[in-house]
Design a binder for these strands. Structure first.
Lengths: 351, 351
DNA sequence: TTGAAAGCGCTAACAA
DNA sequence: TTGTTAGCGCTTTCAA
């Protein structure tokens, strides 16, 4: 910057004013400065600028597991929107390791980012740290998974409704013995999906015993293992709703490995509508949520906050949509259940 | 930091010395400082530290497309290794947009990172910028895709050999009419895979006309489109080698959509050995490359460089391995070709 | 409208 | 062994 000042024969302050675009610098001077900037291929030192301004153009984004194929879309949405608004997205992958998440959270803050987008790996842990960001003047948004204690801005999908829609679809096709593979119970999005599943059952007056809802952890192997457990239950479920696509993929493999067929013997629905849902065989029916939108809305929220939005709290909930594919078929006429009903009803009446 | 100095009743310099761990501070003082650090939950301002030290603990990583499912493994490998060495990985996604890559490259540099790991989106563009990093004292490694003009450290997989192995495997199974879907020609890794393919053909004295090698761009749709083109050729290829798994997935769909069967009518091999290669139907035979290792080696290279490694140039080339799955079958006895040979040979002799 | 100068939080050279 | 101080590159008063 000194060099520029020398080359353009102005003071440091003038160079700064030109670069900040803010001030009232006379045109000839401005030109000289800009030429010097060009000539020297100057880039302002963001470290010094940030130190002085008490704020950088960084938006930090913490994600819990970059391997989960749902996340890239979220990152892309956040990235695009942040970039357009002049911010740079710095991604930190916590690898589902909460200690790592804390380290990143602590350290990232000392880079004085303008904002923080966080898909936490532990909904019980971070709000205190995130609050420190807010106190320091950074905008914070939780995305996808919300710690109950968090009182600030959030962006999520309609998890409950999406799960409800998927379950209702199965019920409408005649399925009565439904199984579900949930995500980890430390994730609110999983809980909401379970609630949607249960609401649909309740409305249809279907009761299932607890072992028909198995807890997984959002990964393929977990879908495989839990589907295997579900399919060994008697009576066997005719349909499985998995809380995400990865687990649904695992379920498809489990079904095949047990000598069963999807959808003839067991229907499967996932959640996320990953690109791959179309590729697997059979193509997977899935609840679509827009990861891109999730990220884009979060980044926009931060940009707005920085520009002075003072609303007490934004709570964005984005719509989902059921994508119908080949992994679901109508339930076969269910002899066993029919017989039981026939036996059961008189018994009920006789009370 | 001032507060700490006050609380521990020492000077700023002493606090700094304790925090840097370097100096000879008497134990009682050291304790007082550390207690104060605890009490105030102090985190050093990395902006100020970086500005002063002329270097931060950031390793920047630029990837061209976070949606490509091969990349997360690379990122994870880099992340783990960087973190263990005390560096923080900041990821920038250029979205295959070279202008964006340039912007990130320019701006990231002014954060004075210790290192830069780059999977470029354009092998012709960035070495000049990357050289600026080296001049500024940051270690730079190119991963996966290497600009020909780059003279520094690199980490890649054995693309040529992997492709050779895959092709030879097909040839050994009797395939003679082979098709290939390449990646974009601006990527060196794609070129190397084409070379491996051609070497195997050459060694087996198989010649194919140019239209049996179609140029794709590493995405699923591109695999679909190019496979469709290949399968319309006469004689139809009995096997297709795709330069990555995503394109191979597209090819599988194309085969099905044309009413053909894999592997009975057409065998398919991909490259990358994504997790999903096991999930698709039929399970995809693929050349495995370790993304995790690619990233880990790159990050280690940077850590070593920062610690003073002065070797002129490191060129790591990691092994690949062919993973056999259901998408390949032996070639059927090939009547058409046999007839041609029978006709051709006498003709040749008569010359 | 422009220039001079203080200071952001930290490190490192030097003095005590 | 500890304290003092200059200064990293920039922004932002304030004065000219």
């Amino acid at each position: 910057m000194k060099e520029i000042a020398r080359l353009a024969d102005v003071s440091l302050g003038t160079v700064s004013n030109v670069l900040s675009g803010l001030s009232t610098v006379r045109e000839p001077l401005r030109q000289r400065v800009l030429e010097a900037v060009q000539a020297l291929d100057y880039q302002p030192n963001q470290l010094a600028r940030g130190l002085r301004r008490d704020k950088t153009n960084i938006i930090g984004m913490i994600i819990s597991d970059i391997s989960n194929p749902f996340f890239p879309a979220v990152v892309k949405g956040a990235e695009d929107t942040a970039f357009k608004n002049g911010y740079r997205l710095f991604l930190c992958n916590s690898d589902n390791d909460f200690a790592k998440e804390e380290t990143y959270l602590h350290e990232l803050q000392t880079y004085l980012p303008s904002g923080l987008i966080i898909m936490t790996s532990n909904i019980n842990g971070s709000p205190a740290l995130a609050d420190a960001y807010r106190k320091a003047g950074s905008a914070v948004v939780y995305v996808d998974r919300l710690p109950p204690l968090w009182t600030g801005d959030t962006v999520t999908s309609m998890n409950e409704q999406g799960a409800y829609d998927a379950t209702k679809y199965l019920i409408d096709l005649g399925h009565r013995r439904l199984g579900m593979i949930t995500g980890s119970s430390t994730r609110t999005n999983s809980d909401e999906r379970v609630q949607g599943f249960r609401r649909a059952l309740r409305e249809a007056k279907i009761t299932i015993s607890p072992e028909y809802v198995q807890e997984g952890y959002f990964e393929k192997q977990s879908g495989y293992a839990n589907a295997t457990t579900l399919l060994k239950l008697l009576p066997r479920p005719t349909a499985i709703f998995a809380a995400n696509d990865l687990m649904a993929f695992g379920a498809l493999t489990a079904i095949r490995d047990m000598g069963l067929r999807c959808p003839e013997d067991v229907s499967v629905i996932g959640f996320d509508n990953l690109d791959l849902a179309e590729i697997v065989t059979p193509a997977l029916t899935s609840v679509d949520q827009s990861g891109y939108q999730l990220g884009a809305v979060a980044a926009q929220l931060i940009a707005d906050r920085i520009r002075g939005d003072k609303e007490p709290k934004h709570t964005h909930v984005l719509p989902t949509a059921l994508k119908l594919r080949a992994s679901v078929a109508p339930a076969l006429i269910d002899f066993e259940t029919t017989v039981k009903k026939a036996r059961g009803k008189p018994a009920k009446r006789s009370r």
